[in-house]
């Protein structure tokens, strides 16, 4: 579904990624973890078609990202990136292709738990709510793959747990492949089917760790803790 081969990406003199082979299967939930500066966000940006000029290949469903492959990809960024002058409804509408009736947009707003806020402006929302608008916008796009770039890192601990549960909920409704970039090992392991550990500078894939648990999961499950340890070991922590 999502695939990179020998992906190398450099910004001027700095090499962000070197020879990264990454793959996510159809419907798979993959977390990408790594220390700051290992290029994990760059990997996501390449897959989203936001970076031009890289070596190797990156493709979505077999189509190279620079040949329209990234058209089927939705992204939720670290900050919600909502249009400050547009209501929640208009912000979510941006994700739809073509024109849609208010009802359809509002259904989606309700699905992310924001009914009643259709005409609110982004400045009236809390950080968690704004991030859910960004998620609704991503879902509106009906992407084959949803890429999340540290979407919860700016939230407080409690809101973060709430939003994680919420992400799993809405994910049950759509069968998109999900790639979550995060620096939070607990989050990566709890949410994903598989954790890709990046390391080094420039970043390369250090290890792939499968999470051998069905959902719903208990956060305190021994097997999760075990997996977490494997990930932190791979990170060299």
């Amino acid at each position: 579904m999502l695939e990179t081969r020998s992906l190398t990406k450099a910004y001027d003199e700095t090499v962000a990624l070197r020879d990264v082979d990454f793959a996510a299967d159809d419907g798979e939930f993959v977390s990408v973890v790594g220390p700051s500066g290992c290029g994990k966000s760059t990997l996501l940006r390449v897959l989203a078609g936001l970076e031009s000029g890289f070596d190797g290949t990156a493709s979505v469903d077999g189509t190279p990202v620079d040949a329209g492959g990234s058209d089927d990809v939705g992204v939720v960024f670290q900050d919600p990136r909502l249009l400050p002058w547009a209501t929640v409804r208009e912000n979510v509408r941006l994700g739809f292709e073509g024109s849609v009736a208010d009802d359809r947009v509002d259904d989606l707003i309700a699905r992310v738990g924001l009914d009643g806020f259709e005409t609110a402006l982004p400045e009236e929302l809390s950080g968690g709510m704004a991030q859910r608008v960004a998620l609704a916008r991503g879902l509106a796009y009906e992407p084959q793959a949803l890429l999340l770039d540290e979407p919860f890192s700016a939230l407080d601990a409690l809101t973060k747990v709430e939003q994680q549960e919420f992400l799993l909920d809405v994910r049950d409704d759509v069968d998109a492949t999900v790639v979550l970039v995060t620096h939070d090992v607990e989050e990566a392991v709890y949410l994903a089917d598989r954790v890709v550990v990046l390391g080094g500078q420039p970043g390369t894939v250090v290890e792939n760790v499968n999470v051998p648990l069905d959902r719903p999961r208990e956060r305190t499950d021994d097997r999760l803790i075990e997996t977490r340890k494997r990930v932190t070991d791979a990170l060299g922590l």
Partner: peptide
């Protein structure tokens, strides 16, 4: 630039981008 990336990700057309993003941003 961040907003322009959003527009790029969601394939918002050129005219729609002007109407919904660039003009309000420049207002």
């Amino acid at each position: 630039e961040d907003l322009l990336e959003v527009v790029e990700v969601y394939d918002v057309g050129r005219l729609e981008t002007l109407r919904r993003v660039i003009f309000p941003a420049a207002l």
